[in-house]
Design a protein around this nucleic acid. Structure first.
Lengths: 199, 199, 199, 199
DNA sequence: AATGAATGAGAATTCATTCAT
DNA sequence: CATGAATGAATTCTCATTCAT
């Protein structure tokens, strides 16, 4: 990659990160392009060299942020799976636990993505990120081993991820109608029941 | 109710309905107060006699729309429960089925409320609508009969409703990652498993 | 006409006049909406209550200004015609003389309208201004008396007006390639020759 | 001419031609330097190596385009004059005919130059193009032979060219208020009358 | 209560021009 | 000579809200 191309990517990242911070502080709607520009230390026109408009920025950011973090989650989980020798249900529990932890710890991301936390799921089938695709296949295999059909496995995985994301989003961000501490175990149990009895 | 107060309520409804249509057509963000005012056939200033501002309108609308329809859903379901003699699990299945039907049929409401379809849940505990409160208690009782603690029952009910709402929202509105026909049975089974094994 | 409607028309005029002055001072391109707004003593948004945008304003202004002044020209000329007893050629000469005088005296209008001074001609056939239509017919009648066919009369009238407008525009505004004093008599003679021998 | 200087001229032409195409497509005002630069296949900064700014480009283009074509017009006409033995009036008629043909055929140039088609006239007296100067003198001589004073000849020539250009501009571009076919003969007759009786 | 003209802060976007490479 | 990323002043336009009638 050339010097220039490097600098461009760097600046694009800088804008994305600055915008993200502002979206957190205020909210997406309350953040003006002008704020982003000032926070990024660039000129107003420069923004438009990198993004078509605010919604283009938001779209790119959701992908960038959710990819970035889901990758970390998957990497951490699969590593543990390989190290220790775990049963299918133990793996699922571990994964769900990690996902909830991830949501709790990344409250900032959650605040921006809202109920779209799990939106990376929709992009999974035709995603061009090899790393994530690999993890996905590895987990899918375990479902097949457990007796799931491929189709059913995909649907159940979707429902579980969505269930956890949706329920925890309200809990983590608003503690409504339950705090994350109150509902955590129930969510975990619910998710596991969906998997255990979903064949 | 007096003549005047009647007219006021009527005009308030007119505004809510006009706004709802526009929110559907365009989206909330793209709808200006001016549009709502024109569609309602009232003067610009009049809007502010009925609503503090746009977000006040939105809040009132979500409540109005989701109450209105959830009431219909609950009424229909509890009636059937009383007529036929059903077991707890049959009742739950019936309720979930009806909820999915309701989401499919009220695609327009879903389009505006998005993943907030189930937001009426958050308001449930301290809601001043007697009718709904009554239904809620009746269903809660069934959970207790089945062996649930009150607290756990509330959590599981929340998770189930949220699970169905969230998964079906994507399915009904975007058919992504699955169409509602593809995922319906899996969602239903998942929800039932959460209830059956959630004690 | 109601009080309000009166005030609206008044404000519209105020904007048109302020804009006209600025167009004169600077040029159309160099005048920002903001300048017009300041000069009119109104708020920025108010401008958009009266005009869609700058080109809408310009269009309305050209019509308004060229109508306004052409009416004065026609009125002045036809009055003289009725008072004194003049031959066709004398009438034409008088008219052309008056038109040149008008262009010289309304240098400001000319500066804004440029070669569009005669653009009111294009709108003549389907114009809804009764006053002007009346004058037009009266003059046309004289041509018919002189032996012109109706069609030919219209064409010759157009060419003459356009000839005078175009040649004098350059002369009055830029004195290029000739000053108006240098070319006036030649233009007048040319125009008269077109009429005299154009049958 | 050196290699380098050749390439420079070539690139300058390329920019002029690209700009001309865009001016035609959109209009001068709606064409950004950026568009011209892209269409020319050069870098943004390069533009400023060849032209001071947009108005400099426009000025150079009007001259370039109107010179280029007026030369062709004059060359074609004078050639015919020399071959055939024509009277003064026949020459004038031929010239006017050719000018109208030229305007009809160069509708694209007309669209950009608008009523400035005849603006080359203003530059005639102090033009450093020998070829055109020569043609001009030759035609002027014929007017003197016909009995015109030098000064009057220049004025009449100006009026005639301007008359034809202005009337035909509206006709060719907008067919308003008359189409070119409708008005052609009347314009021709008018122009000839100006010359015949303009002494 | 109802009206709608007026407001003006503020948002988005463009674009000619510069300058370091 | 050529490049094109960066600039930021300038401009257009929107829209929630107020207030005199």
């Amino acid at each position: 990659m050339s010097e220039i191309s490097n600098k461009k990517t760097e600046k694009r990242m800088k804008i994305l990160e600055s915008a993200f911070s502002l979206f957190l502080e205020k909210s997406v709607a309350a953040t003006a392009i002008d704020d982003i520009v000032k926070a990024s230390g660039i000129a107003r026109g420069t923004f438009y060299l990198y993004f078509k408009d605010k919604s283009d920025l938001l779209e790119q950011m959701i992908m960038y942020k959710s990819m970035e973090s889901i990758k970390r989650l998957l990497a951490g989980t699969t590593q543990k799976i390989q190290e220790e020798n775990l049963s299918f249900c133990e793996i699922c529990e571990l994964f769900i636990d990690n996902y909830i932890d991830y949501l709790v710890m990344n409250k900032d991301i959650l605040a921006v993505l809202q109920k779209n936390v799990s939106s990376w799921l929709k992009a999974l089938p035709n995603l061009d990120d090899e790393e994530i695709a690999l993890y996905y296949i590895r987990i899918l295999d375990r479902f097949l081993e457990f007796g799931y059909s491929k189709e059913n496995a995909q649907k159940v995985m979707y429902i579980v991820i969505d269930l956890v994301g949706s329920a925890c989003c309200d809990a983590v961000l608003y503690s409504k109608p339950f705090s994350i501490d109150d509902i955590r175990e129930t969510v975990k149990a619910a998710a596991l029941n969906v998997i255990k009895y979903g064949k």
